[in-house]
Structures are given as C-alpha cells and as structure tokens.
Amino acid sequence: MKYHTLDELRTVAEVEPHGARTLSRSERLGRWAELLERNPHWHLSTLHQTEYQTPEIRAAMRSDHSPLTVAFNDPLLRAAGMADDTYGEARRFFDLEDGQLHEIICYCHFGATVPASSAARHIRTLLTPPRVSLLSRLRQLVFG
C-alpha cells in the first residue's frame, strides 16, 4: 500500500475529518442556541459598533468570551466547518445576514456583555418562520 499525504489525497477526493457530517443551517443555529442555553446566566462579550465598520474590518472582528467563541469552542460545530470565532466566519458558517448577526452580537443592543439566554433567544427567532398576517394571506390569494 502506498502512503499519501493528506494534501495529496485532497487533489483526488473530498477529505473530511473522521466523524464529520454536514449540518443544515437550522441544525447549526439550533446547536449554537443550545450551547448558549446550557449556561443562560453567562455574560458574554459583545462586538462594538459592528454596523459602522467596513465589511473588511467587520469580518475580522472578534472578542474573547463572546457568543461566537461559545460556538467555535464546540467540537461538533468545528467539525462541521466553523473555522474561527470572527464575525465574518460566523456570518458565513451560520448563513446570516449582517442585520441578523448584529441583533445577536452587537454592543448597541446589550452594552459590553450579553446574557447567553438573550443571544440564544435571538438565534431561536431565526429558526421560526415569520408569521404571516391574515391580510397578507388574503392579498396573496387575491393577487397571487
């Protein structure tokens, strides 16, 4: 049997760490919320003024002991592909828009720290389909 390095194998096959599996967006978000709910009274660091940063700076933003760090420290989420605990990586990995991640992590909503339970609650709202009003449903039926 011939020995091949991992880099050599990657040229001919898709190589995943042992036990890694693809998680859906809902599974990734659900796992993140679950991790935060395990210690609901933790006060985690926020990121300062994410909405005012350039996309490049915002993508690189991180803070020790943030909700993003909680996610990154989880072996399951790391095996699923979370590369680090930066804003940009969380946006990519959890498939979030800036406004959605801003609601979870930004200083302007919580101050210097956010309770883990609050961050989890915001994440859970992303898993719930938006409610459609009766008027919207009628409009859809009439106008298509």
Rank of each mutant, 00 (worst) to 15 (best):
R62H: 11
R58T: 02
T54Q: 14
R139I: 11
S63C: 13
I105S: 08
L23P: 05
L127D: 06
G30E: 11
G99S: 10
L76H: 01
R139L: 13
L36I: 00
T69D: 11
T54N: 08
S66E: 05
L76A: 06
A71E: 05
G111N: 10
L76W: 14
E56W: 04
L138H: 07
G144R: 04
D64F: 04
R92K: 07
A59P: 09
R25Y: 11
S118T: 12
R91I: 04
A112R: 04
P75K: 08
L9M: 06
H4R: 12
G81Y: 07
L29W: 05
D64N: 13
D95T: 09
R121V: 00
E97R: 14
Q100E: 10
L134T: 14
Q49E: 15
P40W: 02
L141C: 11
W42I: 01
G111H: 03
L76E: 01
W32E: 01
V15L: 11
F72L: 02
T54M: 02
R10P: 08
N39P: 13
T69A: 12
D64P: 08
Q100L: 13
P75L: 06
D98H: 10
E103S: 09
A20G: 13
S133K: 06
E89M: 06
M82D: 00
Y87A: 05
R131K: 03
R91P: 01
L35P: 03
P115F: 01
A80T: 05
S45I: 11
W32K: 00
H4E: 13
Y52Q: 07
L44G: 05
V15D: 09
I104M: 01
L29R: 02
H43W: 07
A20E: 10
V132L: 10
Y87F: 14
V12C: 15
E89H: 01
P115E: 04
P67A: 02
G99K: 09
R78S: 03
L29Q: 12
T5V: 04
H18M: 09
N73V: 02
R31I: 01
N73Y: 09
V15I: 15
M82Q: 13
A60P: 02
T54K: 14
D95Y: 05
F143D: 15
L101Y: 10
F143N: 08
R91S: 10
L76F: 04
E34V: 00
E27A: 11
A116K: 12
R28K: 14
D84L: 02
C106E: 06
A90R: 00
A120V: 01
S63E: 13
D7N: 14
A112L: 11
H48Y: 14
H18F: 08
Q53I: 06
L134A: 06
N73G: 09
I123C: 08
E34F: 01
I123M: 03
S133C: 12
P17V: 13
L6C: 09
M1N: 13
F94R: 00
A83T: 07
R121P: 12
